[in-house]
Nucleic acid binder design. Structure first.
Length: 533
RNA sequence: GCCUCCGUAGCUCAGUUGGUUAGAGCAGCUGACUCUUACUCAGCGGGUCCAAGGUUCGAGUCCUUGCGGGGGUACCA
C-alpha cells in the first residue's frame, strides 16, 4: 500500500474518532457554486453609522481595485453578505496556521472557502486537519470577499461529506494519459478542464434534438436492440445467444426497419434516438457502439428531411450557445443556412474529371488509384472511387444529393430517372454526419432489391440478408415517407471541438487492463486488518 | 488484422553514446504561519523503469515476444 493510501486511511479513522461520519449525509438547501457566484452583488460594506456602500467592480482589468485600501478609504465598518450553503470537492487546499483556504468544485464551477479557527471553532478546525484533496465537504457560511477581493464563503460550519481514498491527478497538468482519462472518466470529468463541459453539451444537444422533433409532432419510440436479422445497414453485427429460446440473436446495426414497421402501423412521424452496435474497426471516428438518430415522416421526402437536418443542427448550435461560426480542429466551420447542395455526379466529375456515365473510363480510373473493379457493378466501382477521391475532402456543411440507385436498396428512385435514388448525405469536415432518403415503400421492388443484393455477396454482409418479415410489413402498406439518420457522436464532436469520438463517449470500448492493480488488493487487506484492531 | 509511436514514483515529466546509488515538480509525511490563491519556508520518505526472455563485464537505454494505449491503414451504403 502506498503512503497516500495509508495517510488517507489514517485520516478516515481520525474523522471517525471525532464522531463524524466520513461518508456524509443529506445536506438540504444546498446551492450550486454558480448560484452563489451570482450573489456576488449582494456583498456590501456597512459603515458604523449604519449606511451601506456598494463594493467597487473588481472584475474590470482596466481599473484594478485594492480592496484593503478601498475599505480604509471608506471608513471603519463591516462587510455584509448573504448566508450560503455550498458543497463540493476539495480541489486545492492552502493552510496558513490557524486559517485554511479551500478551492471547492462542484459541476457548475469553483468557489473559494475560508476556514478560520476562531470562526468555526476548535472542533471543525480539527476536522480540516484530516481533509485531503478530493474529499467532498459541505460548508455553511457568509459570502464575502477576502482582502484580495476574491469571492469567498467564510465558513461558519463544516460538514464532512465523503472521504476519498485515492490521490487526485496532478493539480496543474491534470490527467494527461489518454488511457487513464478513458478508464477513469470520473477523474477526467472533475480534474480536466472542458471535459465536464463537453459532456454537458452532449446532453444539451440530445435534448435540443428531442425538442426540435417534438415541435414537429414526432413521436419517440424504443425499438428492439436484439434482432433476429441485423438489417438496415451494411455492417457486421455483434452476435449473441438466447438460452431459453435456443437461438442466435444479433445486436442491432440500425434503427431503420422497425421504425418503418411503425410507419406501416400508422405512426406517421416517428423516431428513435438510441445505441447501435457495429462489429468493425475502431478509429477516431468509429466506436463499436454509437448513438444514432433515425426519424421518419409520412408523406415527406428527402427534401423535407434535408430541411429537418438543417433545423436540428441549427437548434443544437443555439442550445449550446454557439453561433453559425464554429471552430473545429483549428479550422472554421460555417453553419450559416442554407447548407450547400451538390449532386453526386457533379462532385464526382469535379474530383475526377470523368463523365459519371462512362463506366469504362471509371473502371480504368479505379484501377489506376489502386482499386479492384473486377466483377463489381459499375455503380459500386463508382461509389468506391467517390469514397476514395471525394468524401474526405468535403469540408461542408454540404448535402450530397442524388446517389446511384443501385447502391441504395432501401431508397425510392427518382420518378424522372430510375437510375438515380432520392438520397442525400451530409458531409462536414470529411465526416458523414447524416444520411437520408425518400423511403422505398414498394414491397415488390424491395423484395427484388433484397434478392439482387444477395447474389454474389458475402454472408456477413447483413444488408444482403432477405428480411421477409420486413417485406411482409411493407405489403401491408407504408405511406410514402422521408427518412433520416444522424450520427449523434460525430455531431457532438463537431459542436464541442473534439477530435476523437472517444472524447465524446463517456466510456468507450477498451481492452481490460493487462495486470491486476496490486494496490487494490493491498488496500483490501489493510482495511481488514484495521477492522480487526 | 497490419504498420507505427508510446509505456519511468499516486499524477505530470526528464533521463546524454549502454556506465557510479534512476532525477525534478506536484501530491504525501513532520514542523512554522489568521487574507492565501499553483501560498510560502525548513526537513523527511516514496521506484516490479509495463511483463517475460535475450545480447553485454554492465540494460530504464539495444534485440525478441507478449500486454495496454495513441495515430495510421484495412473492414465499414
Amino acid at each position: 500500500m502506498s503512503e497516500h493510501h495509508e495517510s488517507r486511511l489514517a485520516k478516515l479513522e481520525k474523522i471517525q474518532d471525532m464522531g463524524v461520519d466520513p461518508w456524509g449525509a443529506h445536506f438540504p438547501n444546498r446551492q450550486w457554486n454558480s448560484e452563489v457566484r451570482s450573489l456576488a452583488h449582494q456583498v456590501k460594506y456597512q459603515l458604523q453609522d449604519g449606511s451601506v456602500k456598494e463594493l467597487p467592480d473588481f472584475d474590470d482589468p482596466q481599473n484594478p481595485v485594492d480592496y484593503r485600501q478601498w475599505k480604509n478609504d471608506a471608513g471603519s465598518g463591516e462587510e455584509i453578505g448573504p448566508q450560503v450553503r455550498v458543497a463540493g470537492r476539495i480541489i486545492l487546499l492552502r493552510g496558513q496556521g490557524k486559517i485554511k483556504f479551500i478551492t471547492l468544485r462542484d459541476w457548475t464551477g469553483d468557489i473559494q472557502i475560508m476556514i478560520g479557527k476562531a470562526q468555526v471553532g476548535d472542533r471543525d478546525f480539527e476536522m480540516t486537519k484530516h481533509f485531503d484533496l478530493g474529499d467532498w465537504i459541505a460548508v455553511e457560511g457568509r459570502l464575502g470577499r477576502t482582502n484580495t477581493a476574491e469571492l469567498t464563503v467564510f465558513a461558519a460550519k463544516l460538514h464532512f461529506m465523503c472521504k476519498t481514498l485515492e490521490p487526485p491527478p496532478e493539480k496543474h497538468a491534470g490527467l494527461q494519459d489518454s488511457e487513464l482519462k478513458q478508464r477513469q472518466r470520473y477523474l477526467d470529468l472533475t480534474y480536466n478542464e472542458g471535459v465536464m463541459d463537453t459532456f454537458l453539451k452532449r446532453t444539451q444537444i440530445v435534448q435540443s434534438i428531442r425538442n426540435t422533433l417534438a415541435q414537429r409532432q414526432y413521436c419517440e419510440i424504443e425499438g428492439p436492440t436484439l434482432h433476429t436479422i441485423a438489417g438496415g445497414a451494411a455492417a457486421r453485427p455483434f452476435t449473441t445467444y438466447h438460452n431459453a429460446l435456443d437461438m442466435p440473436l444479433f445486436m442491432r446495426i440500425a434503427l431503420e426497419l422497425h421504425l418503418k414497421r411503425l410507419m406501416v402501423g400508422g405512426m406517421e412521424r416517428v423516431y428513435e434516438l438510441g445505441r447501435v452496435y457495429r462489429n468493425e474497426g475502431l478509429s477516431p471516428r468509429h466506436n463499436p457502439e454509437f448513438t444514432m438518430l433515425e426519424a421518419y415522416q409520412a408523406f415527406g421526402n428527402y427534401e423535407v428531411m434535408m430541411e429537418l437536418t438543417e433545423q436540428i443542427i441549427l437548434d443544437a448550435l443555439k442550445a449550446t450557445g454557439q453561433g453559425f461560426q464554429v471552430e473545429w480542429n483549428g479550422q472554421a466551420i460555417d453553419f450559416s443556412p442554407p447548407f450547400a447542395r451538390k449532386t453526386y455526379d457533379e462532385l464526382f466529375h469535379e474530383a475526377t474529371g470523368l463523365e459519371p456515365g462512362n463506366t469504362q473510363a471509371i473502371a480504368e480510373y479505379a484501377k489506376k488509384i489502386g482499386l479492384d473493379p473486377l466483377g463489381k457493378h459499375p455503380d459500386v466501382v463508382k461509389s468506391e472511387v467517390f469514397e476514395e477521391k471525394v468524401e474526405d475532402s468535403l469540408m461542408g456543411p454540404l448535402f450530397v444529393i442524388d446517389y446511384p440507385a443501385s447502391i441504395c436498396p432501401l431508397t425510392k428512385r427518382k420518378a424522372s430517372n430510375p437510375q438515380v435514388a432520392e438520397r442525400f448525405e451530409l458531409f462536414i469536415q470529411g465526416m458523414e454526419i447524416a444520411n437520408a432518403y425518400t423511403e422505398l415503400n414498394d414491397p415488390l421492388l424491395q423484395e427484388e432489391l433484397f434478392r439482387t443484393q444477395l447474389e454474389g455477396q458475402a454472408d456477413e454482409d447483413s444488408m444482403a440478408k432477405m428480411d421477409e418479415d420486413f417485406v411482409l410489413a411493407l405489403r401491408n402498406g407504408m405511406p410514402p415517407a422521408g427518412g433520416l439518420g444522424i450520427g449523434i457522436d460525430r455531431l457532438v464532436m463537431l459542436l464541442t471541438n473534439s477530435r476523437s469520438i472517444r472524447d465524446v463517449i463517456l466510456f468507450p470500448v477498451l481492452r481490460p487492463q493487462s495486470q491486476q492493480n496490486p494496490s487494490k488488493d493491498d488496500a483490501a487487506l489493510t482495511q481488514a486488518e484495521v477492522a480487526e484492531q
